[in-house]
Design a protein around this nucleic acid. Structure first.
Lengths: 332, 332
DNA sequence: TTGTATGCGTTATCAA
DNA sequence: TTGATAACGCATACAA
């Protein structure tokens, strides 16, 4: 394990000063070509790689982006993370992942972040009640929210037009002749669920429906809740013919519940989800769903963040809406 | 955006030297209690957080662990990552994720790593052909492999006993009366698939079977391969009654293929997978599978790595085997 | 037990 | 265009 070679070694070998080596490293323009050549040769010969830690001590930039997700084992977030990780690396950034599903709370993760001089922060999971990210405003770390938006509007956001998404789902079902539609949502302190529910109510009302509160379940936390709700609804006289799950994971659980009642999808009941996670396209599931266009969403979020990091612009916060896309599959 | 306060500010406020503050920070034992109190108060009052970057410049420790996975959107890896991320944080480490599914190759990611003075490395995806991680031996960065083991044995490994796992799967099926069993594997340059295939052959032979090469598909890369193979096998006279997929993802695709043939699971065909990813327990899928005991595997891998990082022991490499566990569900 | 001074590897400042 | 040198924020050897 040989001693790590540093900028001084390179300088000595090339016969120049450390400052010149640094300039070559940073593509400083005013350098005599022959000196540059000399330095480049030395770098190559000695296999010199600059120490990023020392670099960031003085530049205050780590080229590391923190990615906060609710639960990395949730397919939506893991698929989103994959996009971010690979694109970020191409742009010279690494990703430090913060998974909030442990004991740790948001506050806690922010403390970690600040000490590590993270260059920027992508937040995929903002509760609409949670104001703790406000601390970030003081710290001056650039932040971009995606997927879920916070109540505060001071930060950039890239989210899907979730109300429109529900509109697509409802209209799709109505056009297939469904009039008794159920909506099962996760906890509505998340803007995704909040907006999807809102969009459902408005679209469903517009289609002529009324008095449908009994068809709505919010805050479906586990499979049991969903099973119970489905069981109850389908044991009445006027049974529904379509169920919308406010996420693909919810929708897949709905599929289980329906099949356990010996009902067939889509013959007896149609099912629609949201997010287009990859398992949904498996033919065995074949879930009709509304795509968030993850690649587009995360590319945008990342480039907005890097712009904030590199271009020291302090423009007003941008709020980007991504269009939802209906993907029709077996379940409708 | 106020200036970041540093150790000197704290020292001045507390009326001690910066060195003393540093000692308090690092739990140096020989400090007069009243001075310690003074410093602690100052730290609290000024909301001082030590700059981890400056710290690691001198200690050469970043408290950051690199986690290399094949594909973070693969449920096995995302579920594994979640465990690692949360446990690591409790132990004072952050996780930098390297996803190899982008253009980047292993070599490339190692270069990134070295510059960033990563404290250690967890590798979940070693090809048995790939020797590039050998560079790590020079760099002196502690490495622990999990899930897939490399050909070289110089590094610690934590893997499942995959041969035994196949044994469990075969015996389970044989005990249910199956004698015509199919095995569909991923690329066998990965030790997981290699060992599972080996275990299958040996267990199946032991059960009395012979001449079953036609029942084996290796290197199933996409759904189409699997569909074609299943279609062909089930269009012959002597159709199989059980199929083992060498991963849950493969097994779920097998379920699709079987259901597209109008065959019923488990009545006509039984199916077994490996890894126990979370979707497998969804009642709609209900896949019988062999669990890797991910929590155990990753806790062990992490603690072994941290031991290498912190205890500067250069003991011989350890190779830990985790026992497989059969989880019986609907599909058998 | 505590303080002073040096150094980690790089970039930034200033002068030449 | 280049070089000497002072930062960056902290830990540590050495001295006291």
């Amino acid at each position: 394990m040989k001693r790590k070679i540093n900028i001084k070694d390179v300088a000595k070998y090339a016969g120049v000063s450390p400052a010149t080596v640094s300039r070559v490293l940073n593509n400083y323009p005013h350098i005599r070509p022959e000196k540059r050549k000399l330095v480049e040769n030395a770098i190559q010969f000695l296999e010199f790689k600059p120490d990023e830690i020392a670099r960031s001590l003085i530049t205050k930039k780590t080229n590391t982006i923190g990615l906060i997700v609710d639960d990395i084992s949730n397919p939506f977030f893991s698929e989103a993370s994959k996009i971010v990780i690979n694109q970020a690396r191409k742009l010279g950034y690494e990703i430090l992942i913060y998974d909030l599903s442990g004991d740790i709370d948001v506050e806690q993760s922010l403390i970690f972040l600040k000490n590590r001089n993270i260059s920027g922060l992508l937040v995929g999971s903002a509760s609409m009640e949670e104001e703790k990210f406000n601390h970030l405003k003081d710290s001056g770390i650039p932040v971009v929210y995606f997927n879920r938006r916070p109540l505060i509007t001071e930060f950039d956001t890239v989210t899907m037009d979730n109300e429109l998404a529900s509109d697509l789902a409802v209209n799709h079902l109505v056009s297939k002749g469904h009039s008794n539609i159920v909506f099962i949502s996760g906890p509505i302190q998340f803007s995704t669920y909040f907006d999807r529910l809102k969009g459902f109510k408005s679209a469903y009302t517009k289609s002529g429906a009324s008095d449908f509160e009994k068809n709505i379940l919010t805050g479906a936390f586990n499979e049991e809740d969903i099973f119970l709700f489905i069981n109850e609804l389908f044991s009445t006289d006027n049974t529904p013919t379509a169920v919308i799950g406010a996420s693909d994971q919810i929708a897949i659980t709905i599929l289980s519940a329906i099949s356990s009642l010996k009902l067939e999808v889509p013959k007896d009941v149609a099912v629609v989800g949201f997010d287009n996670i990859s398992i949904s396209k498996n033919p065995y599931i074949g879930l009709t769903t509304i795509s968030q266009q993850k690649i587009k969403m995360l590319s945008k979020a990342l480039s907005m963040l890097i712009e904030r990091i590199e271009g020291n612009d302090s423009e007003n916060p941008k709020h980007l809406l991504i269009s939802p896309i209906l993907i029709e599959r077996r379940t409708t």
